[in-house]
Structure formats: C-alpha cells, structure tokens
Simulated assay, not measured.
Amino acid sequence: MPEGYQLTEWEYALKFWNINGSSSHSFSTCYDVTKAFVESSEIMHLRELKGAPVYLFSYFFDRALNSGLVKGNEGGQIELRQFKEAAETACRRGKSEIEDDGSHWMPWQCLDLTYIYSLLRDGYQFEDDQPIVLAKKIKGMEVSWGQGLAFATANEFQLTEGAIKSVLNSTADQNSTVVDQIFDLVYSGTNQVLSYFNIISV
C-alpha cells in the first residue's frame, strides 16, 4: 500500500490488524515478495498446458473484473501479461486515489494482481503470452472454489475409500453392508455433480 495510507482495525482470521503503507510501495517491490512466497510454496509446474487456454474462475475472475480486464459476467480471454500490466497500474495508485475510490478491494488490488501474476508465471510456469479464459459461470451456473474442492474431495475419496472400508469392516463386520451403501451413495452423488459440469467423465 502507498505511503501514508492506513487500514485500522482490519479484521482477518478472527483478529484485528492495523496496516500502514510503505515508502517502498511499487510493483517491483510487491513482485519480489510474492515471487519469493510462490517459489517457496513448491507449486507443481504446468508446462504441459503451455499455449493452451487455461480457465480461471472465482477469485481470479473477480480481480480481473475489478481491474477492467473483463466486462460484466460474460468474462473473456486475455493473455497472462495483462495481469502484470493491471498490477503495474494498480501499484502506481497513491493514497488519495485509493481513498477516493472507496471500494473494499482497492487497497489490496496491487497485491492481489501481483500475486495472481506471480502464481501463474513463477508458480505454474506459464509464459506471458499464455491464453487465459476468465469465466464466472458454466452452463449458466456460477462457479466458485467449491467446485474445485468437490473435485479434490472426490479424488481423495476414491484414493482412500478402500483403506477406510478395511478399517471399518475389521472392527464391525456386521455393518459392512451399511458401510458399502453409504460409500456408494456419496461416491455416485459426487460423480453426478462433477460430470454435470463436465469436470469428470463417467
């Protein structure tokens, strides 16, 4: 945040924080910090997707919308470099510009856009000309982080189903039929939801 800007009693993680801007506020300073964090996070590189359109939703879409990279709920396709350009613009804003705007996300826009750029560039290893498709809905339904969580949960469920069944059956053989029915119900229901959104094929 720019020098002279203050956020007082900002609530996060059930705590209140007082945040002060810095005289070193700039895109390059913010990028150095976010890049160090991203590289320390050991994110899986996705070089196999180089040049192929990558679809982004939720937080990515919202920040792109705030910065004017897409218009309305229609979304659209951009290149990764445009996140960097938007971040550079956001990081040039001074205290008065942020205060005059008043949007709750405006003080964080420099950090948000810089982090998104670094995550995609330094984390997933996409090039600046990587096609990025930003969308809010699939088949008319809004997409959020919940779909990603559902996919990850279903995948984890498949991997651990056998182990859990084994433990439960070893301690209560008489309930094995009930356990099987519960697992089958959860598994089939999750697959139906994910296949509807074309996230998996069944």
Score class of each variant (00 low, 15 high):
L113Q: 08
S118F: 14
G140E: 04
W108A: 10
A163M: 03
E156H: 02
G148S: 07
Y115A: 09
I138Y: 14
Y115C: 04
A163R: 06
T160Q: 08
M141H: 12
Q147T: 06
S118R: 14
W145F: 04
Y117Q: 00
V167E: 09
G123A: 01
L149G: 08
F151L: 03
I164P: 00
Y124P: 01
A152L: 15
Q158G: 15
E127I: 04
Y124S: 06
E142K: 10
D129S: 13
W105C: 01
F126Y: 15
K136S: 10
L159A: 10
K136I: 12
C110A: 05
P107E: 02
K139V: 01
A163H: 11
G140C: 11
N169F: 06
L168H: 06
Y124M: 13
L149V: 09
K139E: 04
E142S: 06
G140R: 00
R121L: 01
F126A: 13
Q130T: 04
L159K: 07
T171K: 06
I164N: 00
F126D: 10
K137S: 14
K165C: 02
E156S: 10
Q109P: 05
D128A: 05
F151K: 03
S170P: 08
Q147P: 00
Q158L: 13
D128K: 03
I132S: 05
D128W: 02
T114G: 11
A163K: 05
S118G: 13
Q147S: 06
E156T: 02
L149I: 08
K165M: 02
L149K: 08
S144D: 04
L159H: 07
L168T: 06
Q109E: 10
Y117F: 03
L134P: 14
D173K: 12
Y117W: 02
A135L: 13
M106S: 12
K165P: 01
D129G: 09
D128C: 01
I116V: 09
T153W: 03
E127Q: 05
Q125F: 14
A172S: 15
Y124W: 13
K137W: 05
D122T: 11
N155A: 09
Q109L: 11
D173F: 14
M106A: 14
R121C: 03
D112H: 07
T160C: 02
E161T: 08
E156F: 10
Y124D: 12
T171L: 12
E161P: 08
D112V: 02
K136W: 11
L113R: 09
A172Q: 15
L168R: 05
K165H: 02
W108R: 00
G146V: 15
P107A: 05
L149T: 07
E127A: 10
V167A: 09
L111P: 03
S170F: 13
C110K: 00
T171Y: 12
D173N: 12
T114F: 12
T171I: 08
L149Q: 08
S166W: 03
G146F: 15
G123R: 02
K136V: 10
Y117R: 01
L111E: 12
E142C: 02
L168F: 11
